[in-house]
């Protein structure tokens, strides 16, 4: 595991954009070093942590999905 790339959130993006002042690109909040991608759903929560890693893998830790992906060439 080498770096934090972003998170995925069930909930409205506008409030996070207002809180950070970061630009929204569709449903994705673009931070300097990561993204927060928003979608609809019945329960608002941060559902996923996106990590850069040496191998592709997905796992559940503490009730949150962790998605590990190798860096794109």
């Amino acid at each position: 595991m080498t770096d934090l790339r972003g998170i995925e959130v069930v909930g409205p993006a506008g409030r996070w954009a207002a809180a950070t002042g970061a630009p929204l690109d569709g449903d994705t909040l673009r931070l300097d070093d990561a993204t927060a991608t928003f979608r609809g759903g019945p329960v608002e929560a941060v559902t996923t942590v996106l990590l850069e890693a040496r191998a592709d893998r997905e796992l559940d830790l503490g009730g949150v999905r962790f998605v590990l992906r190798r860096p794109q060439p």
Partner: peptide, 11 residues
């Protein structure tokens, strides 16, 4: 500057 610094899990 707008950075993602720390996700926090509650367990």
């Amino acid at each position: 500057m707008r950075r993602l610094r720390r996700p926090t899990l509650l367990t």
